[in-house]
């Protein structure tokens, strides 16, 4: 009987005691998680109404964001997308808090570090997203403006604007994540400075004839203009 008690009953009692000790934390964690889900859904609804009130979708249509989102396979409107992101961030934050409530030290330490790092990841993702959208939008705007101005290297100008913004956003994102902080900034400065220097030299050497012709046209003789009145 003693043996049976020591081998079976006592460990079972100890386990039961631990379960009893752990159960309130578990229930608290579960409750926090459920509250997080409900809170996330409520916040999603509230933000959706707010975004509709400030006509965010109209802005996204006018700025060309919606077009880029569709290209990227996103069919939702910007307001729905952002509301969903807010909902999921809320749920994730509550999930982390609920795991903390379990009071398991290892899990606690890991999630504490994740929790501290999470805002950096979020900001870096936002920087990349906006950099991508802005780069495409301004790149296209520069391309169309250059074509309308009759500049022969319009394509190059459009791509230059687009990739300069991509690189800039990427650099900012990496800096936010703390990856090779100084190295990234120095690399960016060198690359960007290098491109500008290369362009200056290329224009100075290769384009001096063009520059001279342009200046001559501009200052010595008025360019022949159309008399068409479009309106």
């Amino acid at each position: 009987m003693n043996i049976f008690q020591r081998i079976i009953i006592e460990p079972f009692e100890r386990f039961f005691e631990r379960v009893l000790q752990f159960l309130p934390n578990f229930i608290t964690a579960l409750l926090i998680f459920i509250v997080g889900i409900v809170f996330g859904i409520i916040l999603k609804g509230l933000f959706l109404k707010f975004f509709n009130a400030v006509s965010l979708d109209k802005f996204s249509e006018r700025s060309g964001m919606i077009e880029l989102m569709r290209k990227g396979g996103i069919r939702d409107s910007l307001s729905v997308l952002l509301s969903r992101i807010i909902e999921w961030i809320t749920i994730v934050v509550f999930a982390v808090i609920s795991l903390k409530a379990l009071e398991v030290s290892t899990v606690e330490r890991i999630f504490e570090r994740i929790l501290l790092y999470l805002p950096n990841v979020f900001i870096a993702s936002l920087l990349l997203l906006f950099g991508y959208l802005l780069g495409n939008f301004l790149g296209r705007a520069a391309l169309i403006a250059s074509v309308n101005a009759g500049i022969k290297v319009s394509g190059l100008i459009g791509r230059f604007v687009k990739f300069a913004i991509f690189i800039f956003a990427g650099t900012m994102a990496l800096e936010q994540l703390g990856i090779g902080r100084e190295t990234v900034v120095i690399a960016f400065t060198i690359i960007f400075g290098g491109i500008v220097l290369a362009l200056s030299i290329a224009f100075g050497l290769g384009g001096k004839e063009i520059a001279r012709t342009y200046l001559e046209k501009k200052f010595l003789k008025e360019e022949e203009k159309d008399d068409i009145k479009h309106i």
Partner: peptide
Amino acid sequence: EPVSVNIDRMIDKFRLGVRELGEI
């Protein structure tokens, strides 16, 4: 009053547009 028009330059602008904006 007569209106002077530079057709060659207009066609050049059209061509540039097609080459660069065709994808759009």
